[in-house]
Write a protein that binds this DNA or RNA. Structure first.
Lengths: 343, 343
DNA sequence: TGAGGCTTTGTTAACGCTAACAATCGACCA
DNA sequence: TGGTCGATTGTTAGCGTTAACAAAGCCTCA
């Protein structure tokens, strides 16, 4: 162990001395430059191995202006989607020889986003990947003039900036159509928070599917992604049913957590799923096959999102203009949806 | 926007020129050194603001040997606990003026751990926080001689290295005792993966509580943290019940996801919770109040774990020896547990 | 056999910052 | 009034690396 009086770490010059060459030759070997005689290269490599030399990243960064790292700005990491995306991103980044630094936004304000990007810029990251889909932070992103490539993940098509996103509308349409095809007269909807772009996209898809089918468009209920809000929405729907105001037989909930809360509320209210009401979620979290009943939902491939984000960054760094491309979600039918009861 | 022919970023000397002082004076202002005349300080600060100067982190790191950043080695980020801990860690680190770099382990091998720590060392991070509780990676950690402080989070008491951890045994004991106090003759257990230290700790606590109460210790069932394995365990238990081999009335499941799977399996098998069988989980994920029925569980404060991890790192960097301290888990009683049926 | 060109190696100068030291300026006291 | 000390500011060097250029050695071909 390098104890308290730790000798300073090895430098190129130490290796050079050991191998009997100049430090520049060592540098060339380390960076795989051509025009190093095979014998010399081997000697240097042996010296590197013997001494256990590792290049100093700070010095490299200073002279090259590149740290071979990306900054990831993220919020809501404690939710399944973002965490999974982070996983895909880190792996892809590492495979490409980049490391990842993360900044978690305290809130979705423009100031927080700006501050995070700024810190990354000062750290000379090669690119910033922003994975935030909320309110002002997104707007900030749109307007940002950063001196590094700035890639947005999961922000929906953005004309001004390279983007990777899941086609939320398509997923919502598929979910809604699935319910309509089961014979439901219409489909109710529990949204995510109002400042979330994903939530917005799902509302659009849901509405479009209803309109295309000529079905009535009921007033949506609003949630915040968490199970508790889904529970509240479930109680509200049950109340509507009991009051005889509306015939609620199908609900499309904007994510699986809220769907779980909704299922729980419906069970409390004595309504059976899918007997009385069919429910579709969104995300396909790993647990949702074990809800009561197992949840029909729309799968998003979050890890793929991360991978494509890195692809986009790399293309951008190479100067190739790459198309923004949506990841397509997929309907997973389980047992929470069934045919409408005959009237 | 800094366009393609981007002018190089501002340096100290630019600010110095603008303010009419030497670059060193600017450096002093930036670093809050004393002995700068108030008037000068203000002039420099104005210049900094006007030009929008931000110090170059790489140059600083090169000369100081410190990047003011921590490396976080983590695995299983896609699960609730690790993600939540990351959240607490990043926030606390940022508050202390440090930024976070993450490496996600591909597997829990020693090689993966070593590789990750090595990369961080080359990047001159000021400390490495390891958040991994699995198999060989933990052993690797124990043996590691890194030239930077290495702090382990959630690895249980470790004599050789500063550590923050949740007292798993205590949580498991509390959960088990809760069931025994409800009159259950014994408590069955579904474990996590065999190479997880958390899982191991929970087995110990469970067994101790049973032995202390003089209750029989049944053979535990084994899971892997995921809901599917809990489902399998649930079916296995139901089979035992049906075969009349055992009187299963209470189960302590090592995490909430598996408990969800178990609940689902029991429901499929026509067993009621808590009527026939009482179930306790572990973690208190945000959803578990909405399981069917709402799950009694043991809450771990993951974010607190992250915060304490940073505290420990900071103390270590200041040279203060800080005690390893456990975070205490807490029983949350919901509706999945009830009194044993009278025989 | 010598000029030209390639390959290989070395030398020097940055990159932007902080630390150590040097210099300047007042103020204060004997 | 001159010397001393503290406060303030400037100057220089060096962190470990890469890039640009220079030099040396060898081969090839006229």
């Amino acid at each position: 162990m390098l104890t308290d009086g730790a000798p300073r770490a090895l430098a190129l010059s130490d290796v050079a001395l050991h191998a009997g060459v100049s430090h520049q030759t060592v540098s060339r070997v380390v960076n795989g430059h051509p025009n190093v005689a095979p014998a010399t290269r081997e000697r240097v490599q042996r010296a590197i191995a013997e001494l256990g030399y590792r290049p100093n990243a700070a010095a490299r960064a200073l002279v090259t202006g590149s740290t071979r790292s990306f900054g990831l700005v993220i919020s809501h990491i404690n939710q399944y989607g973002p965490a999974q995306t982070l996983l895909g991103l880190e792996k892809a980044a590492r495979a490409a020889g980049y490391s990842l630094r993360v900044a978690i936004l305290d809130d979705d304000s423009e100031a927080a986003m700006r501050e995070a990007v700024d810190r990354f810029v000062a750290q000379s990251v090669d690119a910033v990947v922003a994975l935030s889909t909320y309110g002002q932070a997104v707007d900030a992103l749109r307007r940002f003039d950063a001196p590094v490539p700035l890639i947005a993940v999961q922000v929906g098509r953005d004309e001004s900036r390279p983007t990777v996103w899941v086609a939320q509308e398509v997923g919502a349409e598929v979910a809604t159509r699935h319910l309509l095809e089961l014979g439901h007269r219409t489909v109710h909807h529990v949204t995510g928070p109002p400042d979330s772009l994903e939530s917005h996209g799902r509302v659009i898809g849901w509405r479009r599917a209803l309109e295309d089918a000529g079905a009535p468009v009921p007033e949506p209920l609003h949630g915040d992604w968490w199970a508790s809000s889904g529970h509240a929405a479930g109680r509200a729907l049950a109340a509507r049913v009991r009051a005889g105001q509306e015939d609620v037989t199908a609900v499309f909930v904007a994510n699986d957590q809220m769907a779980l809360g909704l299922l729980s509320a419906l069970a409390d209210e004595g309504l059976s799923v899918p007997g009385d009401i069919s429910v579709v979620g969104f995300d396909d979290v790993p647990e949702c096959g074990y809800f009561s009943p197992p949840l029909t939902t729309v799968r998003q491939d979050f890890a793929e999102l991360g991978r494509r984000g890195v692809e986009l960054v790399l293309a951008r760094l190479r100067g190739e203009p790459l198309e923004s491309q949506p990841v397509l979600p997929q309907l997973i039918v389980r047992r929470s949806t069934g045919p409408a009861r005959p009237v």
